[in-house]
Amino acid sequence: MGRRVLLVEDEPNIIEAIRFILSRDGWTVEARSDGQGTLDAVRRRRPDLVILDVMLPNRSGYDVLRDLRDDPQLSGLPVLMLTARGQKKDRDLAMRLGVSRFMTKPFANAEMLTAVRDLAGG
């Protein structure tokens, strides 16, 4: 208990990579590829950390982030945003919306793992 990650990402290969890296470290990884319904999934499953992509089908990562922050019960939930859009304005927007950590793809596996451990207090 206590080491569960919800991964929201639409590239199957990236899901597989992250799942491998985190599960080797003892995390349970649950993945979904649709932005829509993510809020409900978080409410239901109560993960310790959400890893969020930006370019998602139906509902963008920014919108999902806004949903999470708007919910008082979830406002403290750590969110790690991973995005292939590495421009400054993307980072600024994510920061304004209250993201816990922002990383650009491609990332170093060790760096990502460190970030997850930091955020979810592993």
Partner: peptide, 24 residues
């Protein structure tokens, strides 16, 4: 520009992640 960045970085992400896994 965002799109082209996304299109290039997405495959690169998988490549980097798996090659690091294989390397380690």
């Amino acid at each position: 520009l965002g799109q082209i960045s996304h299109e290039l970085r997405t495959p690169m992400t998988s490549i980097r992640a798996f090659s690091e896994i294989l390397r380690d």
